[in-house]
Computed example of a mutant assay.
Amino acid sequence: MSRYKNGNPKRQSRFICLQCLQENKLAQGIQRKSQRKKFHIKDLTCLNCDGKICKCIEVRYCDSFDEVMDKAKELSKMYYSRENINKENNRKVG
């Protein structure tokens, strides 16, 4: 039997929200059976963005947090430019 009930805590993934560029506390500690590619992007709920579903970039246990944060700033401009946010807010429904 394994010592760890919920997986190995040393292999937990963390996520950075690409909209607010803060660590997503809701998705902290996701365990993976196999490792995802570097800079994997996932749609997750972010508490910092009022519970909206946002794009988040994965920080694997073997990655440098600063390196992933630099990449997140670059990708944030692509996914959440001011023009895209204004288009989403001004969209008519119905």
Rank of each mutant, 00 (worst) to 15 (best):
N48M: 08
S81T: 09
R36S: 12
V68T: 15
C20Q: 09
I41A: 11
K73P: 03
E58V: 01
R14F: 08
D66E: 15
G94V: 02
L21S: 00
C62L: 09
Q19T: 07
L21W: 00
C62V: 13
K37M: 06
A27N: 13
S2D: 09
L47E: 10
K92P: 00
R3C: 00
C54I: 06
N84V: 04
N24S: 09
P9H: 09
E74C: 05
K52V: 05
F15N: 00
S76T: 03
D66C: 01
D70E: 14
K33A: 10
H40V: 03
C49W: 06
S81R: 08
P9V: 11
Q28D: 12
I16C: 01
E74M: 12
F39N: 15
E23I: 09
K87W: 03
S34P: 01
G7D: 06
K25S: 11
Q12E: 10
F39T: 04
M69Q: 07
S64T: 06
S64L: 00
S13Q: 02
N6I: 05
K52R: 14
Y4W: 15
N86A: 01
N48P: 04
H40Q: 07
M1C: 14
K71I: 07
Q28V: 07
Q31F: 08
L44R: 01
N84C: 05
D70M: 10
S13D: 04
E23D: 09
L18V: 02
C49H: 01
C56V: 03
F65E: 11
K52M: 03
K87M: 06
L26F: 09
N84M: 12
K77R: 12
K25G: 14
C20V: 08
N24E: 11
L75Y: 10
K77Y: 03
Q35S: 15
T45C: 10
N90H: 08
Q28M: 11
Y4H: 11
C56I: 01
M78H: 13
L44Y: 12
H40E: 09
K38C: 05
K42Y: 08
R60H: 04
D66A: 13
S76Q: 07
V68K: 08
L21C: 08
D43F: 02
Q31M: 06
Y80G: 07
L47P: 05
M78Q: 14
Y61C: 13
K52L: 12
H40G: 05
C20S: 09
N90S: 14
Q12I: 11
Q22G: 09
D66Q: 15
Q31I: 03
E67Y: 09
E88M: 06
M1K: 01
V68P: 04
Q22E: 13
D43K: 15
N48I: 02
Q35I: 13
Q19G: 03
S64F: 06
S13W: 03
Y4P: 00
G29K: 04
F39C: 02
K38Q: 15
K37Q: 12
G94S: 01
N8R: 12
M1Y: 03
S13R: 01
E67V: 11
E83F: 02
M78V: 13
M1R: 02
S64G: 06
Q22P: 04
K92D: 04
G51S: 12
R32P: 02
E88I: 11
I30S: 11
